[in-house]
């Protein structure tokens, strides 16, 4: 006891392990930065470039607004179709992947399928589909369907794994068939979260549908990429404004949908990507 009185006490002991960790992180940053050729001179010339670049971006050139509108429309169509397709596919796949409802020989293949869908970035999947079904919106739709399944089905399966089994048991005790158990015992418990995941993925699809055009899979991405390559930065600026506006509107829209379905999802509890 007396030792404790004499020893100088600190309310917050320094954590040496953490400090060493931070130091290691710092060393890594310096090492990686030198490896990737980050130099001050490059940064300074970059700033000059940036000034010129911004100067050419403004004012945005909306003179080709018809092309922008057409591309934007196609992007939205891709997003809508991919979301609907992805949601419809995710329902059964998510069910099959839930470990508390399905035997191992069913949930393993389903979970492997979901993992495969999630591995590649939508743009890479789009490349493969462009080869398979040619240039155009279809490749974009298929790529985003894959991305949607990878996201919604995974979270849906996890949501099902967290349900309370009491209600399932109660429904089963009434002699309900398997489908009845699913419809009356399982679905009501996860419906709100499923809608939350779906609207979140719709937002993500809108964002990605503006990008798949870079590899030729339709939408606003193609005109954007062309404008970049031609150094028409004022057109680039116009297209970017259009994209941000549409993405923003879609986010408002999906928040409304979530409110209608009464899920207490603020942006914070939105399911996390990954």
């Amino acid at each position: 006891m007396s030792e404790a009185v004499h020893a100088p006490r600190r309310a917050f002991e320094p954590d040496w392990l953490a400090r060493i960790g931070w130091l290691a992180a710092l060393l890594y940053v310096v090492y990686a930065a030198s490896l990737l050729d980050f130099t001050w001179a490059r940064f300074v010339t970059g700033l000059e470039q940036a000034a010129r670049f911004l100067d050419r971006m403004f004012p945005p050139d909306f003179s080709r607004w018809e092309a922008v509108l057409k591309g934007m429309k196609e992007s939205l169509e891709i997003a809508v179709l991919a979301s609907v397709g992805g949601i419809l596919l995710s329902l059964p796949i998510g069910f099959l992947a839930a470990r508390n409802l399905m035997p191992a020989w069913v949930n393993w293949p389903a979970r492997a399928l979901i993992a495969a869908c999630r591995t590649f970035h939508p743009v890479i999947v789009a490349i493969v589909f462009v080869k398979a079904v040619g240039f155009g919106a279809l490749a974009g739709i298929l790529a985003l369907v894959i991305a949607s399944v990878g996201f919604i089905a995974k979270l849906f399966a996890e949501a099902i794994e967290e349900i309370s089994l009491k209600q399932v048991e109660a429904v089963r005790a009434t002699g309900a068939s398997f489908m009845n158990v699913v419809v009356f015992g399982v679905l009501p418990q996860v419906a709100a979260r499923f809608i939350g995941f779906s609207t979140y993925q719709f937002d993500a699809n809108v964002r990605n549908s503006t990008m798949v055009g870079i590899v030729g899979a339709g939408g606003i991405g193609a005109p954007l990429f062309v404008a970049f390559q031609r150094f028409d930065y004022d057109v680039v600026c116009a297209i970017l404004i259009a994209i941000v506006a549409v993405v923003f509107l879609c986010e408002i829209l999906s928040n409304q949908v979530k409110r209608v379905f009464g899920e207490a999802v603020q942006d914070g509890q939105a399911p996390r990507r990954g």
Partner: peptide, 15 residues
């Protein structure tokens, strides 16, 4: 809302 590919295009124009 700006996709990482667009950010990349912007930074390529600069750096």
């Amino acid at each position: 809302s700006v996709n990482s590919l667009v950010w990349a295009l912007l930074f390529i124009a600069v750096f």
